[in-house]
């Protein structure tokens, strides 16, 4: 699966990464005011969390070989 890293020191709790995720991979910890990478196995490397972080506090490393795609069912 993709690796999504949050630098909790750089993060300022703006929630942008959580809002930018269009498939609920990222949840929000309201007490800690930090994102929770809850379902990384469903991440589709759209990069919107990283793109929208003004602090550079979140990074996505795609691992395409584990992306869910029916490789053996093409024809």
């Amino acid at each position: 699966m993709n690796t999504i890293i949050v630098n909790r020191e750089l993060c300022n709790g703006c929630k942008r990464c959580f809002q930018a995720c269009f498939i609920d991979v990222i949840k929000w910890d309201a007490d800690a005011k930090r994102p929770v990478i809850a379902y990384p196995e469903e991440c589709v490397q759209c990069m919107f969390c990283e793109l929208n972080c003004d602090q550079g506090a979140i990074k996505v490393h795609p691992k395409y070989e584990s992306y869910l795609f029916p490789r053996e069912s093409l024809v």
Binding site: L68, P70, S73, V75
Partner: peptide, 16 residues
């Protein structure tokens, strides 16, 4: 659910 998604993909993706 993701196991089911994988099974559905195998039906829908084939060009045939």
């Amino acid at each position: 659910p993701m196991e089911m998604v994988a099974e559905i993909q195998k039906v829908m993706q084939p060009l045939g």
